[in-house]
Simulated assay, not measured.
Amino acid sequence: MLKRRIAAHPSLSVGAFCVDSGRALASLFLRPVAPAMFTAPVQWQDCAAVDVAPEQPTRSLFGVSLSSIQPQAVEAMFAFLYPYLLKGGWRDIYLGSPIPGLRKALEKNAGMPIWSYVHARRRRRSGEPTDPQLAYYHRKGFRQIVSIQRDYFPHVPSLNYGVILRGQIPLARFGALWRATPLPLLKSVSQLL
């Protein structure tokens, strides 16, 4: 599956590696997607499918496997990737996330609607979600909750629920300008982000 993802969209497959050991520290595999698909019930395998292309042209991407044990690796990966995304005219990235704190939250408060849990925020940490995975993605710029999906993928702590998140690519609204800008200059501009 990894080889198929890279072969399908080589310019949208990135990773960060340790310079000493060569060990992978972070990865992200992107594919074009029609955002309207997230307004209906959807499962992870539908979102991540390599062989499915959107019916109409799109400026949106779906990301698979954005995880890392080292936050700096994710930051380095995005710093490398952003100029290419801007040059390609991409506007936003969607991700699917588990909500691993859901089961425990419902054990404490069985009547709580799932919507309430997903949208709950920490008071002391700049409005971050209370769920640890959603908070992680929030810090990476994925701040818009698009939909809550039942039976998204098997994950016991999430009770099989998933959340579709959206992150805007910084400065993407100037897409025509970025497509005309030489890549070396665009790399310099994106470093300011």
Score class of each variant (00 low, 15 high):
115 W>P: 02
143 R>F: 03
139 R>F: 01
183 L>D: 10
130 T>P: 04
120 A>F: 05
137 Y>Q: 04
159 L>R: 12
169 I>G: 00
132 P>K: 11
139 R>C: 10
156 V>R: 12
132 P>M: 13
159 L>M: 12
147 S>Y: 01
169 I>F: 01
177 L>Q: 08
162 G>W: 02
121 R>K: 15
162 G>I: 05
161 Y>V: 00
111 G>R: 06
166 R>E: 05
141 G>M: 13
128 E>L: 14
139 R>N: 08
149 Q>C: 03
157 P>H: 06
133 Q>M: 15
129 P>Y: 06
141 G>I: 12
135 A>V: 06
147 S>D: 13
157 P>T: 08
167 G>N: 09
146 V>S: 04
162 G>T: 02
130 T>V: 15
171 L>H: 10
130 T>E: 13
158 S>V: 08
125 R>L: 14
129 P>A: 10
116 S>C: 13
152 Y>C: 00
139 R>A: 08
130 T>F: 08
129 P>N: 07
135 A>P: 09
123 R>W: 13
150 R>L: 03
153 F>L: 12
179 R>G: 03
155 H>I: 08
169 I>M: 11
114 I>N: 04
145 I>C: 12
148 I>C: 03
122 R>D: 11
172 A>E: 03
139 R>G: 12
122 R>M: 14
132 P>R: 13
141 G>T: 10
118 V>G: 04
117 Y>S: 07
146 V>E: 09
136 Y>R: 14
117 Y>N: 08
155 H>P: 09
149 Q>S: 03
182 P>E: 08
122 R>W: 09
118 V>H: 02
173 R>P: 01
161 Y>E: 00
